[in-house]
Amino acid sequence: MGKDKETPEERRERLRQQEWENNPSGSLKDSLNRGANGSLVDLVGSLGWKGTGILILIMIFGFIIYAVFFR
């Protein structure tokens, strides 16, 4: 598949692989920092739109349940 017809996910992965090849220690540091702090972009990218919607609904319902029982 050419660079013109690749999806955004494939492009991100290709750029990530190129960065790993060019600077493995810098990528390791970035991944350790991202793992420690969490990255919303990676979470949403891995879940897709359905998973993200379900996550938002769970957060809303969790807040409602918290508001009803603990206030």
Rank of each mutant, 00 (worst) to 15 (best):
M1R: 09
M1L: 09
M1Y: 10
G2Q: 06
G2R: 08
G2I: 12
K3V: 05
K3P: 10
K3A: 08
K3C: 03
D4Q: 15
D4G: 10
D4V: 08
K5W: 03
K5L: 06
K5R: 09
E6N: 01
T7F: 05
P8R: 15
P8H: 15
P8K: 15
E9K: 15
E10A: 06
R11A: 12
R11Y: 05
R11E: 13
R11W: 07
R12G: 02
R12Q: 05
R12K: 15
E13V: 07
E13C: 07
R14K: 06
Q17D: 12
Q18R: 09
Q18P: 02
E19H: 11
E19W: 09
W20Y: 13
E21H: 10
N22E: 15
P24F: 04
S27W: 02
S27L: 04
L28S: 04
L28T: 10
K29F: 06
K29T: 04
K29R: 04
K29G: 14
D30I: 05
D30E: 15
S31I: 14
S31Y: 11
S31N: 14
L32F: 10
L32G: 09
L32H: 05
N33G: 07
R34H: 08
R34N: 14
R34S: 12
G35L: 00
G35W: 02
G35P: 00
G35N: 01
A36D: 11
N37C: 03
N37G: 04
G38C: 08
G38I: 05
S39Q: 03
L40E: 12
L40K: 14
L40G: 14
V41Y: 13
D42R: 11
L43V: 07
V44Y: 09
G45L: 06
G45D: 08
S46M: 04
L47W: 07
L47G: 14
L47D: 03
L47S: 11
G48I: 02
G48L: 03
G48S: 02
G48N: 05
G48H: 07
W49M: 04
W49D: 00
W49P: 00
K50G: 10
G51C: 00
G51N: 03
G51Q: 01
G51D: 02
G51K: 05
T52K: 01
T52A: 13
G53E: 10
I54P: 03
I54Q: 10
L55G: 01
L55E: 01
L55Y: 05
I56M: 12
I56E: 11
I56D: 04
I56V: 11
L57D: 06
L57C: 03
L57F: 09
I58T: 02
I58C: 09
M59G: 14
M59R: 08
I60E: 09
I60L: 08
I60F: 09
F61R: 01
F61Y: 01
F61C: 01
G62S: 07
G62I: 02
G62M: 02
I64Q: 00
I64W: 02
I64E: 00
I65C: 05
Y66Q: 04
Y66F: 15
Y66D: 10
V68T: 02
F69W: 09
F70G: 08
